[in-house]
Design a protein around this nucleic acid. Structure first.
Lengths: 222, 222
DNA sequence: GTATTTCTTTGCGTATGCATTAAATAATCA
DNA sequence: TGATTATTTAATGCATACGCAAAGAAATAC
């Protein structure tokens, strides 16, 4: 009922994003504007607008006469992204701790942690990844800095496509949830220093694992 | 000679940015696409593309049928931006220290610091601001994370317009350059921990001064 | 056989026009 | 009079058209 028809440019953004994440538009591939327009059954205009937006979000690149290139991610890129996430999320954790949220306001965090436990128990990696996303998104939201929220969302997006690949290459992230609990408790206790530090370590650890994994499998691009 | 004619969209981006920074397009003001198109003597198409780009950079906002709104910055916005800058720049400082640059590679930092000294000596605030920009830009570049570079650039842009106002409201930033020297020395000495900490304090201090200033002058929007 | 020039193709940047739809205004009714 | 609905207005979203410039193909010269 509240369904606005949704503009073509918006649809183009959504659908292109989806196709990039699903791999239908593979990393490194080039596509002409007219090709994408045909694909989405619309004219070049809204496609161009969508492409411009997605370019500013780092998902693709416009190269005149070469086509729109879906940006591949090198291990170095992953490192960069994880470093940004580390800094901004741990800042958010610190801030969240300072706010002094009551238990109720932190229930989404608890829920996400519980869901991760459950997912790990039944070895459902997709469910785990989804809950993990939720935890990090909520953490950043609790931090209360809207710019941090949107930057982190952008960076997470970039990593998302790669995770589809890497998620199944590594053992169950059983240890990871202890980190999440630590962060949660520090926030609940209002211990900003600890929240910051815990989350920082958590992200640095995750980065190390990932970089290691990419090296081991000799993955140069995702 | 290497002057490519520069596309209209690119020109639109540059000129709109310039007009926003100069105040010709004032914060909080609304402008129709067609109005901007007339202003720049081009059609709506490239203007729309430019506006889309600038929107993604947080300088303005498209509100269908209300016009393009140049985003004003509240003190809370400034706080958010400074926090992001604090985190990412101090990360860059840490990384720069870890790289182990030789004195030659750090000469731009030294130059910027010297220029700030000179500017302060002759009370040239514009020159000081320009050199300060240079210092921070170079610092972040030395950090070696391209994403940090572009995010910091975006955030600095948002602050730039406000600085035109605030710069002249406060006393000469004589103390600030000692901070810069501390950061520089830590990087030169390869002391990552110190570099990070120094720069963090520097930015937090700057934020405090600014927020204070805005409160004192009861500036709700810039 | 290679290098250089000319020709052809084609993708993009921009302008333009039209349909849509949100806002503003007028009109109608309780 | 105040509220509600119809009407008008006009800015946007999108499609389309066109010219330019770049990449590639063909042709010519060497």
């Amino acid at each position: 009922m509240t369904d606005r028809p949704l503009s073509s440019s918006q649809r183009a953004i959504n659908e292109l994003r989806a196709k990039i994440f699903s791999g239908e538009l593979a990393a490194g591939s080039d596509h002409l504007e007219s090709e994408l327009a045909d694909l989405l059954a619309m004219s070049r205009t809204p496609v161009r607008e969508a492409v411009l937006t997605l370019e500013s979000q780092g998902l693709l690149e416009m190269r005149p006469r070469k086509g729109v290139r879906i940006l591949p991610l090198s291990p170095e890129d992953m490192g960069e992204i994880y470093d940004v996430l580390t800094e901004l999320e741990s800042h958010a954790a610190e801030r969240a701790a300072l706010v002094g949220y009551d238990a109720g306001s932190l229930s989404m965090l608890v829920k996400a942690i519980d869901d991760m436990d459950t997912a790990i128990a039944v070895s459902d990696l997709d469910a785990w990844a989804e809950a993990d996303d939720r935890f990090h998104t909520e953490l950043v939201r609790l931090g209360g800095n809207s710019r941090v929220v949107s930057i982190v969302n952008m960076m997470s997006d970039q990593v998302r496509r790669a995770r589809t690949t890497t998620l199944f290459m590594r053992p169950l992230p059983t240890k990871s949830n202890q980190d999440h609990r630590d962060v949660y408790q520090a926030i609940r206790d209002g211990d900003a220093k600890a929240a910051r530090k815990s989350h920082r370590l958590h992200r640095q650890h995750a980065k190390a694992i990932l970089v290691d994994l990419l090296a081991k499998h000799r993955l140069r691009f995702l």
